[in-house]
Structure formats: C-alpha cells, structure tokens
C-alpha cells in the first residue's frame, strides 16, 4: 500500500468539505431548536473528518451506505446540499421528495445508497452492493459507514465473514464516536472493535478520526486495495459525538446525564476543522485569505439552501401511494 499525505490543495478541499458539513449541521441544529424542522435530526458535528477523509478517494460510481447520522456522508460523497436541506424540511424539492427525511437522505445516482434509520443496516446492504460491484468488474468500490453502536449488531459478524470469504471490494469504516445512542461505549461494547474484523482475516487500520489527513491516508490504502481486487479492509476511526444522540434530547432525558460537560469540552479542543484551519493558516497570508473565502462561500451556500427549502412547495402526500411500487398501486 502506498502511503502519501494529502497535498496542500487536497487539504484545502478536505477543509472545505468538512466545513460545509459543519456549517450545514450547525444551521440544522438552530433550525431544529427554532422548531422549523418536522422530524428528528442526528448530527455529525465533530466527526466530519471521517466521512470527508474517506469519500475524497471515491468516484461518482462508487457506493456508500450510511447511518441515521448521515448528512456528513451524503455531503462528503457529493450529494446536493439544497436537495438535502429541502428533504429535511419535508419539501417536494427534497432529494427523496420529502418521503424520507433526515434519516433517509439518498442519491442513488451518486452511489449514496441512503442514510438508514436501522442501526447496522448498512452492513448487509454494503455487502450485497459489493458483491454486485465485484460481479460487474467495473472497478467500483463500496464503503460502509457505521458506528461503534452498530458494531454490536450480529450482522457485522455475518458480513465480515462474507466480505473476507469472497474478497469483496468493501471498506468497513467504524466511526467510533463513543456513544451507542445514550449509552457510553464502555458500558455496551467489549474489546477493540477492529479485532472483530481481524478474527475474519481482514486487515485493520486504527486511526485518529479527528485527523483528516490520517483518515485520508488510511482510506486511500484501503480503497486502493479494494479497487485492486485484494479484498476488504476495516478502518476503526476514533472520534467523538459532540452533539447528543439527537437534537432536543434533553426533553427525553428529563434532567439525567450520560456524560460530563468537561468531556465534551475536551473533545471540542480537538476539533478536526479547527486544527486543520490552524495548520493551513500557518502557511501564510495567501492561505489565510483562501480560508476566509471558503468560510464566506460556505455560509452563503448554507443560507441559500435554507432559503431554497423554505421557498419550496410542501411534499406531495399522494406520493405515499404512487411511490410504494414501481408501476403498481399499493
């Protein structure tokens, strides 16, 4: 496997993509708080380096499976921002025409096989997609994003077994964000998760998931390996979920706590976006102004996306009937 660090331009591209995810989700957080979103949102704030570092190596024809915390994967894989925000606003211009919402943002034309509300559902979907990709012999690769919580679903073992046995072009990316919904990983997960893959003779890489360059390097090697027909790799990326399991979760918790504020603050100090910004700003004044341009450009895009969503027509309720089947009444 070749090990190469991202170039300066690649770092700027990674920075831009991470910032797009961050600013979009900060806005969604605020819109949720303001009561402007009809459904729940599960935010990826703090974990952006993982999706961004991995998807930087993917082609439009490659495929990903995502999670209920899927906005970052969708945007990192090149999903359209306006259509995603409109989806979360339940508008007919949404990427799923308002029928899926935050937990199901998908763009099959870009290989985004969908965020998914069932924790761990991506394992088998990714395995099936990778089998299809292998048979088609077009060099397509599949990346399966999932969390440490999902790693406790039995289907992980089943899919590691098949992926290894059949040498599938599949990269498992475990985003270890330390929480299984409202339960700290230490209370529900035993051992090192990547050891589960080692048991099936799958090579593993454990990386700092808050270091986008480290994720980028690991993913480059894993994706190259998959594309060359040498089989699956398992990446365990350590990161931290800054937001709760879902926005407005304090209503459910009723004053209870499952983590300390100090722990959250500590991880905020390790923000993947801030540290890359510092690194790039240190290069000189040209880079500083480039960072400022990126910031203002993204703020404008996010504003525009929300305006687009708000101005769009509500979803067409009749789609619930016409979209159930292809060419058939429900």
């Amino acid at each position: 496997m070749t090990r190469a660090a991202p170039s300066r331009d690649e770092l700027f591209a990674l920075y831009e993509r991470m910032l797009l995810i961050r600013r979009t989700e900060e806005r969604l957080r605020d819109e949720n708080k303001a009561g402007n979103l009809p459904g729940a949102v599960h935010l990826y704030i703090g974990e952006e380096a993982v999706a961004t570092g991995v998807c930087a190596h993917l082609r439009a024809t490659d495929m990903i499976t995502s999670t209920h915390r899927g906005h970052g994967h969708y945007l990192a894989k090149g999903g359209d921002l306006n259509a995603m925000v409109a989806e979360i606003y339940a508008r007919r211009t949404g990427i799923c025409r308002g029928m899926g919402g935050s937990m199901h943002v998908a763009d099959f034309s870009k290989g985004i096989l969908g965020a998914n509300g069932i924790v761990g559902a991506g394992f088998a979907i990714a395995t099936g997609a990778a089998y299809s990709a292998q048979l088609a012999k077009e060099g397509r690769v599949v990346v399966d994003f999932f969390g440490d919580g999902a790693s406790n679903q039995g289907t992980l073992m089943e899919c590691l077994n098949i992926a290894s046995l059949w040498h599938l072009p599949l990269v498992f990316v475990c985003e270890h964000n330390r929480f299984s919904e409202f339960s700290p990983a230490s209370t529900v997960t035993s051992g090192q998760i990547s050891d589960r893959a080692r048991a099936f003779a799958i090579p593993t890489l454990v990386v700092d998931g808050n270091d986008v360059a480290a994720v980028w390097e690991a993913a480059r090697a894993a994706i190259e390996r998959a594309r060359d027909g040498r089989g699956p790799t398992f990446i365990e990326a350590h990161t931290y979920r800054i937001q709760g399991h879902m926005e407005a979760e304090s209503l459910l918790l009723g004053g209870q706590h499952y983590r300390d504020d100090a722990e959250i603050e500590g991880w905020k100090q390790r923000c993947p976006i801030t540290s890359l910004r510092k690194q790039l700003a240190a290069l000189g004044s040209v880079e500083v102004s480039r960072l400022e341009q990126i910031e203002s450009h993204i703020m404008a895009r996010v504003d525009e996306a929300v305006k687009f969503a708000v101005a769009s027509e509500p979803a067409d309720p009749e789609l619930a009937f016409s979209l159930m089947f292809d060419g058939q009444q429900p």
Partner: peptide, 17 residues
C-alpha cells in the same frame, strides 16, 4: 445468515443486479 442475505439482496439490487 438470513438477516444478512435479505439485506444483501437489497444492496445487490440497488447496485444494479
């Protein structure tokens, strides 16, 4: 592993088979 097989059917269909 039927739990995986039904999910694989979805993935392989989504990928074009």
């Amino acid at each position: 592993c039927e739990q995986t097989l039904t999910g694989m059917a979805v993935g392989a269909a989504a990928a074009g088979h």
